[in-house]
Design a protein around this nucleic acid. Structure first.
Lengths: 190, 190
DNA sequence: TTGACAATCTAGCAATGCTAGAATATATCC
DNA sequence: GGATATATTCTAGCATTGCTAGATTGTCAA
Protein backbone atom coordinates (compact mmCIF):
# COMPACT_ATOMS: atom_id res chain seq x y z
CA UNK A 1 0.00 0.00 0.00
CA UNK A 2 1.41 3.32 -1.08
CA UNK A 3 -0.81 5.35 1.22
CA UNK A 4 1.76 5.94 3.91
CA UNK A 5 4.31 6.71 1.21
CA UNK A 6 1.99 9.30 -0.27
CA UNK A 7 1.45 10.80 3.15
CA UNK A 8 5.16 10.95 3.82
CA UNK A 9 5.68 12.55 0.44
CA UNK A 10 2.97 15.13 1.02
CA UNK A 11 4.45 15.88 4.43
CA UNK A 12 7.82 16.38 2.84
CA UNK A 13 6.36 18.69 0.25
CA UNK A 14 4.66 20.72 2.92
CA UNK A 15 7.93 21.00 4.79
CA UNK A 16 9.65 22.24 1.65
CA UNK A 17 6.93 24.82 1.18
CA UNK A 18 7.63 26.10 4.69
CA UNK A 19 11.34 26.43 4.02
CA UNK A 20 10.80 28.06 0.64
CA UNK A 21 8.33 30.51 2.13
CA UNK A 22 10.72 31.36 4.96
CA UNK A 23 13.54 32.01 2.55
CA UNK A 24 11.40 34.03 0.16
CA UNK A 25 10.02 36.27 2.88
CA UNK A 26 13.45 36.68 4.49
CA UNK A 27 15.06 37.68 1.21
CA UNK A 28 12.32 40.15 0.43
CA UNK A 29 11.45 41.65 3.84
CA UNK A 30 14.14 40.45 6.23
CA UNK A 31 14.11 37.73 8.86
CA UNK A 32 12.07 39.80 11.30
CA UNK A 33 9.14 39.41 8.91
CA UNK A 34 9.42 35.63 8.97
CA UNK A 35 6.87 34.91 11.67
CA UNK A 36 5.13 31.64 12.40
CA UNK A 37 1.80 33.24 11.61
CA UNK A 38 3.04 34.53 8.26
CA UNK A 39 4.45 31.15 7.32
CA UNK A 40 1.26 29.40 8.39
CA UNK A 41 -0.75 31.73 6.21
CA UNK A 42 1.62 31.11 3.32
CA UNK A 43 1.27 27.33 3.41
CA UNK A 44 -2.45 27.58 4.23
CA UNK A 45 -2.28 25.61 7.45
CA UNK A 46 -2.68 26.65 11.07
CA UNK A 47 0.32 27.61 13.15
CA UNK A 48 0.69 24.44 15.21
CA UNK A 49 1.27 22.48 12.01
CA UNK A 50 4.64 24.18 11.69
CA UNK A 51 5.64 22.73 15.03
CA UNK A 52 5.05 19.23 13.73
CA UNK A 53 7.81 19.90 11.20
CA UNK A 54 10.21 22.04 13.24
CA UNK A 55 10.84 22.28 16.95
CA UNK A 56 10.88 26.04 16.87
CA UNK A 57 11.46 29.08 14.68
CA UNK A 58 15.24 28.75 14.90
CA UNK A 59 15.09 25.36 13.23
CA UNK A 60 13.25 26.85 10.29
CA UNK A 61 16.04 29.38 9.93
CA UNK A 62 18.42 26.44 10.20
CA UNK A 63 16.73 24.64 7.33
CA UNK A 64 17.16 27.70 5.14
CA UNK A 65 20.77 28.01 6.27
CA UNK A 66 21.41 24.42 5.28
CA UNK A 67 20.17 25.18 1.79
CA UNK A 68 22.50 28.13 1.76
CA UNK A 69 25.52 26.03 2.66
CA UNK A 70 24.79 23.72 -0.21
CA UNK A 71 24.54 26.61 -2.65
CA UNK A 72 27.64 28.33 -1.31
CA UNK A 73 29.66 25.15 -1.71
CA UNK A 74 28.42 24.79 -5.28
CA UNK A 75 29.29 28.39 -6.10
CA UNK A 76 32.78 28.08 -4.66
CA UNK A 77 33.44 24.89 -6.58
CA UNK A 78 32.13 26.47 -9.75
CA UNK A 79 34.56 29.35 -9.26
CA UNK A 80 37.56 27.01 -9.48
CA UNK A 81 38.55 26.95 -13.15
CA UNK A 82 40.93 24.20 -14.26
CA UNK A 83 42.81 26.62 -16.51
CA UNK A 84 43.67 29.12 -13.79
CA UNK A 85 46.79 29.28 -11.66
CA UNK A 86 46.74 28.41 -7.96
CA UNK A 87 46.80 32.08 -7.01
CA UNK A 88 43.99 32.90 -9.40
CA UNK A 89 41.95 30.12 -7.88
CA UNK A 90 42.27 31.61 -4.42
CA UNK A 91 41.29 34.97 -5.83
CA UNK A 92 38.30 33.54 -7.67
CA UNK A 93 37.04 31.62 -4.66
CA UNK A 94 37.35 34.70 -2.47
CA UNK A 95 35.47 36.81 -4.98
CA UNK A 96 32.79 34.15 -5.34
CA UNK A 97 32.38 33.96 -1.57
CA UNK A 98 31.80 37.68 -1.25
CA UNK A 99 29.53 37.72 -4.28
CA UNK A 100 27.43 35.08 -2.60
CA UNK A 101 27.30 36.99 0.69
CA UNK A 102 26.21 40.24 -0.95
CA UNK A 103 23.84 38.71 -3.47
CA UNK A 104 21.90 36.82 -0.78
CA UNK A 105 22.29 38.76 2.45
CA UNK A 106 19.35 37.14 4.18
CA UNK A 107 20.59 33.68 3.30
CA UNK A 108 24.07 34.56 4.49
CA UNK A 109 22.64 35.91 7.71
CA UNK A 110 20.83 32.64 8.35
CA UNK A 111 24.02 30.72 7.74
CA UNK A 112 26.37 32.75 9.91
CA UNK A 113 24.62 35.19 12.19
CA UNK A 114 21.22 34.00 13.32
CA UNK A 115 20.66 31.18 15.79
CA UNK A 116 19.85 28.06 13.82
CA UNK A 117 20.31 25.08 16.08
CA UNK A 118 22.71 23.62 13.53
CA UNK A 119 25.52 21.53 14.93
CA UNK A 120 28.98 21.91 13.47
CA UNK A 121 31.98 19.69 13.83
CA UNK A 122 29.83 16.74 14.88
CA UNK A 123 29.60 13.24 13.55
CA UNK A 124 26.10 13.99 12.27
CA UNK A 125 27.07 17.25 10.63
CA UNK A 126 25.35 17.36 7.22
CA UNK A 127 27.54 17.19 4.13
CA UNK A 128 26.60 20.71 3.04
CA UNK A 129 28.31 22.14 6.09
CA UNK A 130 31.59 20.44 5.32
CA UNK A 131 31.50 20.94 1.59
CA UNK A 132 32.09 24.67 1.40
CA UNK A 133 35.04 24.26 3.71
CA UNK A 134 36.31 21.55 1.39
CA UNK A 135 36.14 23.82 -1.63
CA UNK A 136 38.17 26.44 0.17
CA UNK A 137 40.66 23.90 1.38
CA UNK A 138 41.17 22.77 -2.21
CA UNK A 139 42.50 26.13 -3.33
CA UNK A 140 44.40 26.76 -0.11
CA UNK A 141 46.19 23.41 -0.06
CA UNK A 142 48.95 24.29 -2.57
CA UNK A 143 50.11 27.08 -0.29
CA UNK A 144 50.00 25.58 3.15
CA UNK A 145 51.37 22.82 5.34
CA UNK A 146 48.49 22.97 7.77
CA UNK A 147 45.58 23.17 5.36
CA UNK A 148 42.85 23.12 7.98
CA UNK A 149 44.19 26.04 9.94
CA UNK A 150 44.98 28.02 6.81
CA UNK A 151 41.50 27.37 5.47
CA UNK A 152 39.92 28.43 8.76
CA UNK A 153 41.88 31.65 8.62
CA UNK A 154 41.02 32.26 4.98
CA UNK A 155 37.37 31.64 5.68
CA UNK A 156 37.43 33.89 8.73
CA UNK A 157 38.96 36.71 6.75
CA UNK A 158 36.28 36.41 4.08
CA UNK A 159 33.54 36.24 6.66
CA UNK A 160 34.88 39.34 8.37
CA UNK A 161 35.03 41.21 5.06
CA UNK A 162 31.46 40.22 4.33
CA UNK A 163 30.13 41.20 7.73
CA UNK A 164 31.92 44.50 8.14
CA UNK A 165 30.97 45.57 4.64
CA UNK A 166 27.39 44.48 5.16
CA UNK A 167 27.26 46.63 8.29
CA UNK A 168 28.78 49.62 6.52
CA UNK A 169 32.01 49.67 8.53
CA UNK A 170 34.44 49.35 5.64
CA UNK A 171 34.41 50.97 2.22
CA UNK A 172 32.64 48.97 -0.47
CA UNK A 173 34.72 50.60 -3.18
CA UNK A 174 37.89 48.93 -1.92
CA UNK A 175 36.61 45.39 -1.87
CA UNK A 176 38.89 44.22 -4.67
CA UNK A 177 41.99 45.61 -2.97
CA UNK A 178 41.08 43.84 0.24
CA UNK A 179 40.67 40.57 -1.62
CA UNK A 180 44.12 41.09 -3.06
CA UNK A 181 45.55 41.42 0.42
CA UNK A 182 43.81 38.27 1.57
CA UNK A 183 45.22 36.46 -1.43
CA UNK A 184 48.68 37.60 -0.50
CA UNK A 185 48.18 36.24 2.97
CA UNK A 186 47.45 32.84 1.54
CA UNK A 187 50.09 32.81 -1.13
CA UNK A 188 52.73 34.42 1.05
CA UNK A 189 53.87 36.86 -1.62
CA UNK A 190 53.68 40.49 -2.49
CA UNK B 1 20.30 79.07 39.99
CA UNK B 2 21.79 75.58 39.83
CA UNK B 3 18.44 73.85 39.85
CA UNK B 4 18.29 73.13 36.17
CA UNK B 5 21.93 72.03 36.31
CA UNK B 6 21.10 69.62 39.11
CA UNK B 7 18.19 68.28 37.08
CA UNK B 8 20.33 67.85 34.02
CA UNK B 9 22.94 66.08 36.12
CA UNK B 10 20.37 63.76 37.67
CA UNK B 11 18.99 63.01 34.25
CA UNK B 12 22.45 62.14 33.05
CA UNK B 13 23.01 59.88 36.01
CA UNK B 14 19.76 58.10 35.34
CA UNK B 15 20.77 57.61 31.73
CA UNK B 16 24.05 56.09 32.83
CA UNK B 17 22.21 53.73 35.17
CA UNK B 18 20.17 52.54 32.22
CA UNK B 19 23.26 51.85 30.14
CA UNK B 20 25.06 50.16 33.02
CA UNK B 21 22.04 48.00 33.75
CA UNK B 22 21.71 47.03 30.09
CA UNK B 23 25.33 46.03 29.89
CA UNK B 24 25.27 44.13 33.17
CA UNK B 25 22.20 42.14 32.27
CA UNK B 26 23.49 41.47 28.75
CA UNK B 27 26.81 40.21 30.03
CA UNK B 28 25.17 37.99 32.60
CA UNK B 29 22.06 36.70 30.80
CA UNK B 30 22.43 37.71 27.16
CA UNK B 31 20.84 40.50 25.18
CA UNK B 32 17.52 38.72 24.92
CA UNK B 33 17.11 39.30 28.65
CA UNK B 34 17.60 43.03 28.27
CA UNK B 35 13.97 44.08 28.05
CA UNK B 36 12.53 47.52 28.61
CA UNK B 37 10.56 46.21 31.56
CA UNK B 38 13.63 44.70 33.15
CA UNK B 39 15.61 47.89 32.72
CA UNK B 40 12.76 49.98 34.10
CA UNK B 41 12.62 47.76 37.16
CA UNK B 42 16.36 48.05 37.58
CA UNK B 43 16.39 51.86 37.61
CA UNK B 44 13.14 51.99 39.60
CA UNK B 45 11.21 54.05 37.10
CA UNK B 46 8.33 53.17 34.82
CA UNK B 47 8.95 52.03 31.27
CA UNK B 48 8.06 55.24 29.41
CA UNK B 49 10.90 57.01 31.24
CA UNK B 50 13.35 54.97 29.19
CA UNK B 51 11.88 56.44 26.03
CA UNK B 52 12.67 59.94 27.24
CA UNK B 53 16.34 58.92 27.18
CA UNK B 54 16.45 56.66 24.13
CA UNK B 55 14.31 56.48 21.03
CA UNK B 56 14.05 52.73 21.19
CA UNK B 57 15.70 49.59 22.49
CA UNK B 58 18.28 49.55 19.70
CA UNK B 59 19.65 52.87 20.86
CA UNK B 60 20.24 51.47 24.32
CA UNK B 61 22.24 48.67 22.73
CA UNK B 62 24.03 51.39 20.78
CA UNK B 63 24.98 53.24 23.94
CA UNK B 64 26.53 50.07 25.35
CA UNK B 65 28.29 49.46 22.05
CA UNK B 66 29.78 52.93 22.17
CA UNK B 67 31.23 52.18 25.59
CA UNK B 68 32.65 49.03 24.10
CA UNK B 69 34.38 50.85 21.27
CA UNK B 70 36.05 53.12 23.77
CA UNK B 71 37.30 50.19 25.81
CA UNK B 72 38.43 48.23 22.78
CA UNK B 73 40.45 51.18 21.54
CA UNK B 74 42.07 51.53 24.96
CA UNK B 75 42.90 47.82 25.08
CA UNK B 76 44.45 47.86 21.62
CA UNK B 77 46.55 50.91 22.42
CA UNK B 78 47.66 49.33 25.66
CA UNK B 79 48.79 46.27 23.74
CA UNK B 80 51.30 48.29 21.73
CA UNK B 81 54.55 48.14 23.68
CA UNK B 82 57.29 50.61 22.71
CA UNK B 83 59.96 47.94 23.13
CA UNK B 84 58.45 45.50 20.67
CA UNK B 85 59.19 45.10 16.98
CA UNK B 86 56.68 46.12 14.31
CA UNK B 87 55.73 42.50 13.73
CA UNK B 88 55.30 41.85 17.42
CA UNK B 89 53.04 44.85 17.65
CA UNK B 90 50.74 43.47 14.98
CA UNK B 91 50.72 40.16 16.80
CA UNK B 92 49.97 41.79 20.15
CA UNK B 93 47.16 43.93 18.79
CA UNK B 94 45.60 40.94 17.09
CA UNK B 95 45.78 38.91 20.29
CA UNK B 96 44.37 41.80 22.31
CA UNK B 97 41.48 42.16 19.88
CA UNK B 98 40.50 38.53 20.18
CA UNK B 99 40.96 38.57 23.94
CA UNK B 100 38.54 41.47 24.08
CA UNK B 101 36.01 39.70 21.89
CA UNK B 102 36.04 36.52 23.93
CA UNK B 103 36.25 38.17 27.34
CA UNK B 104 33.15 40.32 26.67
CA UNK B 105 31.03 38.48 24.15
CA UNK B 106 27.88 40.46 24.88
CA UNK B 107 29.69 43.74 24.53
CA UNK B 108 31.27 42.57 21.29
CA UNK B 109 27.88 41.47 20.02
CA UNK B 110 26.46 44.93 20.68
CA UNK B 111 29.34 46.51 18.83
CA UNK B 112 29.34 44.34 15.74
CA UNK B 113 26.28 42.16 15.39
CA UNK B 114 23.17 43.71 16.88
CA UNK B 115 21.31 46.65 15.36
CA UNK B 116 22.40 49.76 17.23
CA UNK B 117 21.42 52.76 15.16
CA UNK B 118 25.05 53.90 15.27
CA UNK B 119 26.30 55.76 12.22
CA UNK B 120 29.73 54.98 10.92
CA UNK B 121 31.84 56.94 8.49
CA UNK B 122 29.84 60.08 9.08
CA UNK B 123 30.93 63.53 10.05
CA UNK B 124 29.21 63.10 13.41
CA UNK B 125 30.76 59.72 14.08
CA UNK B 126 31.89 59.66 17.73
CA UNK B 127 35.60 59.51 18.45
CA UNK B 128 35.35 56.05 20.03
CA UNK B 129 34.33 54.59 16.72
CA UNK B 130 37.38 55.93 14.93
CA UNK B 131 39.85 55.32 17.71
CA UNK B 132 40.06 51.55 17.58
CA UNK B 133 40.62 51.77 13.87
CA UNK B 134 43.37 54.24 14.54
CA UNK B 135 45.12 51.91 16.95
CA UNK B 136 45.08 49.17 14.35
CA UNK B 137 46.29 51.52 11.65
CA UNK B 138 49.24 52.45 13.84
CA UNK B 139 50.65 48.95 13.85
CA UNK B 140 49.72 48.26 10.24
CA UNK B 141 51.26 51.44 8.84
CA UNK B 142 54.89 50.21 8.77
CA UNK B 143 53.89 47.41 6.42
CA UNK B 144 51.58 49.07 3.97
CA UNK B 145 51.31 51.74 1.32
CA UNK B 146 47.55 51.95 1.58
CA UNK B 147 47.11 51.93 5.35
CA UNK B 148 43.34 52.33 5.36
CA UNK B 149 42.69 49.38 3.10
CA UNK B 150 45.24 47.23 4.90
CA UNK B 151 43.73 48.13 8.25
CA UNK B 152 40.23 47.35 7.00
CA UNK B 153 41.44 43.97 5.88
CA UNK B 154 43.28 43.29 9.12
CA UNK B 155 40.25 44.28 11.13
CA UNK B 156 37.97 42.15 8.97
CA UNK B 157 40.18 39.14 9.44
CA UNK B 158 40.12 39.58 13.21
CA UNK B 159 36.39 40.09 13.24
CA UNK B 160 35.88 36.94 11.20
CA UNK B 161 38.11 34.96 13.53
CA UNK B 162 36.15 36.24 16.52
CA UNK B 163 32.76 35.51 15.01
CA UNK B 164 33.45 32.08 13.60
CA UNK B 165 35.10 30.95 16.81
CA UNK B 166 32.27 32.40 18.88
CA UNK B 167 29.81 30.39 16.77
CA UNK B 168 31.86 27.21 17.12
CA UNK B 169 32.76 26.93 13.46
CA UNK B 170 36.53 26.92 13.83
CA UNK B 171 38.74 25.17 16.37
CA UNK B 172 39.51 27.23 19.47
CA UNK B 173 42.73 25.32 20.04
CA UNK B 174 44.25 26.73 16.87
CA UNK B 175 43.66 30.38 17.60
CA UNK B 176 47.34 31.21 17.99
CA UNK B 177 48.25 29.62 14.68
CA UNK B 178 45.54 31.59 12.91
CA UNK B 179 46.83 34.81 14.42
CA UNK B 180 50.26 33.92 13.09
CA UNK B 181 48.83 33.59 9.60
CA UNK B 182 47.08 36.94 9.87
CA UNK B 183 50.31 38.50 10.99
CA UNK B 184 52.04 37.09 7.95
CA UNK B 185 49.41 38.62 5.74
CA UNK B 186 50.21 42.00 7.15
CA UNK B 187 53.95 41.68 7.24
CA UNK B 188 54.14 39.94 3.88
CA UNK B 189 56.61 37.33 5.06
CA UNK B 190 56.78 33.65 5.89
C1' DT C 1 -3.73 80.42 45.65
C1' DT C 2 -3.84 79.53 40.99
C1' DG C 3 -2.54 78.17 36.57
C1' DA C 4 0.91 76.53 33.43
C1' DC C 5 4.26 73.28 32.50
C1' DA C 6 7.17 69.42 33.15
C1' DA C 7 7.86 64.78 34.82
C1' DT C 8 6.07 60.46 35.60
C1' DC C 9 2.82 56.66 35.82
C1' DT C 10 -1.14 53.58 34.70
C1' DA C 11 -3.07 51.03 31.48
C1' DG C 12 -3.25 49.12 27.25
C1' DC C 13 -2.34 47.96 22.14
C1' DA C 14 -0.66 44.98 18.69
C1' DA C 15 2.55 41.57 17.73
C1' DT C 16 5.41 37.61 18.86
C1' DG C 17 6.60 32.34 19.84
C1' DC C 18 4.51 28.64 21.41
C1' DT C 19 0.92 25.18 23.35
C1' DA C 20 -3.20 22.81 25.63
C1' DG C 21 -7.16 20.77 24.49
C1' DA C 22 -11.10 20.36 21.41
C1' DA C 23 -12.60 18.84 16.92
C1' DT C 24 -12.17 16.40 12.84
C1' DA C 25 -10.60 13.20 9.63
C1' DT C 26 -8.59 8.57 8.79
C1' DA C 27 -7.42 3.92 9.62
C1' DT C 28 -8.27 -0.59 12.15
C1' DC C 29 -10.78 -4.20 14.02
C1' DC C 30 -14.88 -7.20 15.07
C1' DG D 1 -20.75 -1.76 8.24
C1' DG D 2 -20.31 0.14 12.41
C1' DA D 3 -17.63 1.05 16.39
C1' DT D 4 -13.34 2.28 18.08
C1' DA D 5 -8.82 3.77 18.15
C1' DT D 6 -5.39 6.76 16.20
C1' DA D 7 -3.56 10.57 13.54
C1' DT D 8 -4.09 15.07 12.01
C1' DT D 9 -5.44 19.62 12.29
C1' DC D 10 -7.64 23.64 14.30
C1' DT D 11 -9.41 27.03 17.72
C1' DA D 12 -8.33 29.64 21.29
C1' DG D 13 -5.37 31.46 24.40
C1' DC D 14 -1.10 32.30 27.39
C1' DA D 15 2.85 34.95 28.51
C1' DT D 16 6.02 38.10 26.77
C1' DT D 17 7.67 41.75 23.90
C1' DG D 18 8.39 46.97 22.25
C1' DC D 19 6.09 50.90 22.44
C1' DT D 20 2.50 54.76 23.42
C1' DA D 21 -1.82 57.57 24.59
C1' DG D 22 -3.73 59.80 28.15
C1' DA D 23 -4.37 60.48 33.00
C1' DT D 24 -1.93 61.90 37.16
C1' DT D 25 1.24 63.91 39.95
C1' DG D 26 4.77 67.20 41.08
C1' DT D 27 7.03 71.92 40.46
C1' DC D 28 7.42 76.59 39.90
C1' DA D 29 6.19 81.40 38.63
C1' DA D 30 2.65 84.98 38.77
Amino acid sequence: MGISERKARERGERERRIVVAARTIAERDGWASVTIRRLAEEIEYSQPVLYSHFENRDQIVGAVALEGFGELAAMLRAAIRPSSTPKERVQDVAAAYLDFAFARPALYEAMFVLPTGLRFARSDTPAQLRDGFGAMATVIAPFSQDVDTATETFWSALHGLAELERHGRIRPAFRAQRITLIMQMVSGQR
